[in-house]
Amino acid sequence: MIAFWVLAPLMVIAALGVVLVRRAVHSALLLAVVMISLAVLYLTLEAPFLFAVQIIVYTGAILMLFLFVLMLVGVDAADSVVETIRGQRLLAITGGLVMGVLLVVVVAQISLGTMVGMGAANAGGNIEGLADLLFSRYVLSFEATAALLITAALGAMLLAHRERLEPKEGQRAMAARRMQEYGTSGRHLGPLPSPGVYARHNAVDTPALLPDGTPATDSVSRVLAARGTVRSAPALGDVEDVQRTLGDVGGISGGSGSATDTSAGGGYNTENPDTRPQGDDWPEGDE
């Protein structure tokens, strides 16, 4: 029972966390805590097979699936806390509480008596016992489960499949299109710039700097920009330091105000990451 009394409060807290935290990823991780704790409880309840299945299926497969989908979907990762349906939250909490209290009272009403324990049932091995039951008394349900799983797999494929309505763009067509775009709107013909490579900041989340000192938006992934996890380019700070030590070398001068703005922004325009920052935003010089 020690395991239970250690794990039970943990599980309740984690479960509350699943419901209460705002970020879905945190919810998923807290759910993993609940599930692994549950697996341990299965062990204490003498269900070793379910312990394994709980960890493999739930924690290993289902939760991973959740995380995958969160990665695909979870751009607006945080939930708004404003309740839109009038009275829903109050009623939900009241209903939940009443249900919980009623359930506890109902359970308390029943005198269950002493546990029999799994000693006899697990005498020939837990897995063997389960297999015995699955392939004898529950064989029909087992077969039905097989059908269910196949159907579910097919259904998921059908739902996730996106019908291609036009032929895939080949290399030649792509080259022609890009040439066309260059001709009409002057869009850069070559590959996108790689992210910034700096002595202190060298990562995919840091944009490269253009010759005029402005960050190249295209150099970081749009997804990172959308998530708001793009680091600010540290270059401008360095430029000021260099200016301070070397004095005015000419050619390169910086309006410190704009530089601070840029560095403090921490990210880029997330609305339209395709917009290329123009060089004339930068003041040419003030002497």
Partner: peptide, 13 residues
């Protein structure tokens, strides 16, 4: 039951 209740409140809210 406690976990169940928490789960149901989560579904509702």
């Amino acid at each position: 039951t406690i976990l169940f209740t928490i789960g149901s409140v989560g579904v509702l809210t």
